[in-house]
């Protein structure tokens, strides 16, 4: 097997992803091939180079706030949190005040004393005369 075919296996060997039998053959080759040894060392150094750069990358201080604000999460902004926490007691207080105002209004507008009966309509002592008919005779009381 040529070096080219072994080189194709170096990456998987590096990650422990090469089947045992192939790995054994590659290890035997590596003992006798300085070129493939150097290649394996070079490939193995890539992770270190990438991590060296990535460890130096810094994230903006306001990144979290920008993400959460874009997401619309109410916990993010400083002013929304107090509003949220004060909202419940404010609603309760408003309801309590409304109830109190209702009670006061009812107290001052309720009627005083027992209910007064409405006066009955006056019944006429004499039935009205029907047109065309003579009025009934009225008995005059004898005056003493």
């Amino acid at each position: 097997m040529t070096c080219t075919l072994y080189e194709e296996q170096l990456s998987s060997y590096l990650d422990g992803e090469l089947p045992a039998r192939r790995a054994a053959r590659l290890e035997a080759h590596l003992k006798t091939c300085p070129h493939c040894q150097a290649e394996l060392t070079a490939l193995g150094g890539i992770a270190g180079r990438l991590r060296a750069v990535s460890s130096q990358i810094e994230v903006s201080h306001d990144f979290d706030r920008r993400v959460l604000r874009a997401f619309g999460y109410w916990h993010v902004t400083g002013w929304q949190k107090p509003v949220k926490s004060y909202l419940k007691p404010l609603v309760i207080l408003a309801l309590f005040l409304l109830a109190m105002m209702g009670a006061v209004w009812h107290f001052f507008t309720r009627p005083l004393g027992p209910p007064v009966p409405e006066p009955r309509p006056a019944v006429p002592a004499v039935a009205p005369a029907i047109s065309g008919m003579p009025a009934p005779p009225v008995q005059e009381r004898e005056e003493r």
Binding site: S54, I57, V59
Partner: peptide, 22 residues
């Protein structure tokens, strides 16, 4: 749950930005 998003964000902020930056 309050704070759960922040916790995930705090954990993965750096890997996500780093990957995107690279």
């Amino acid at each position: 749950v309050p704070g759960a998003f922040q916790a995930l964000l705090s954990r993965y902020r750096r890997p996500a930005v780093t990957l995107a930056y690279q």
